[in-house]
Simulated assay, not measured.
Amino acid sequence: MKRVLFLTIALILSLSLSVYAHPPGNIEMSFNNENNMLEVTIPHNSNDNSKHFVKNVKVYLNDSLHIEQDFIMQTNNEVQYLHYMIPGAKSGDTIRLKAECNKFGSRENEINVE
């Protein structure tokens, strides 16, 4: 009986947490070859962008960690905007970005440099 009660409480707590916490949305990225600039938009809705936000971003160039940045809040309550210069990126390279929420979940996306 105690085990069933414990599992029920754990399930209720995990479901209630997921209502308020969610991973970042679909990451949009574009790379400008002229200035080696990666432009990133990470949708992530929050009622308070200083308490629920994109906390960490990692940028990989050809599966090698190139940039890692931690945040204490995001740009606004809807989105995190980022710009990164990636010197040495050339046609055929792959850029992958992983964004992590401070409450729950993460999302990845990748693009190929043309």
Rank of each mutant, 00 (worst) to 15 (best):
E28V: 11
M29F: 02
S30Q: 12
F31K: 05
N33W: 02
E34G: 06
E34F: 06
N35M: 02
N35A: 04
N35P: 10
N36E: 08
E39N: 14
V40W: 02
T41L: 13
I42D: 00
N45K: 10
N45D: 06
S46D: 01
N47T: 10
S50T: 14
S50C: 09
S50R: 13
H52T: 07
H52C: 02
F53C: 00
F53P: 01
K55D: 12
N56Y: 08
V57F: 03
V59W: 04
N62Y: 09
D63H: 11
D63L: 06
D63R: 15
L65A: 05
L65N: 04
I67D: 07
I67G: 01
Q69S: 12
D70H: 08
I72T: 13
I72L: 06
Q74C: 05
T75K: 07
T75I: 05
N76G: 11
N76D: 15
N77Q: 13
N77F: 04
E78S: 15
V79P: 00
Q80L: 06
Y81K: 14
Y81C: 00
Y81Q: 08
L82Y: 03
Y84C: 01
Y84E: 10
M85C: 04
G88M: 02
K90M: 11
G92E: 03
G92V: 09
G92Y: 01
D93V: 04
D93C: 07
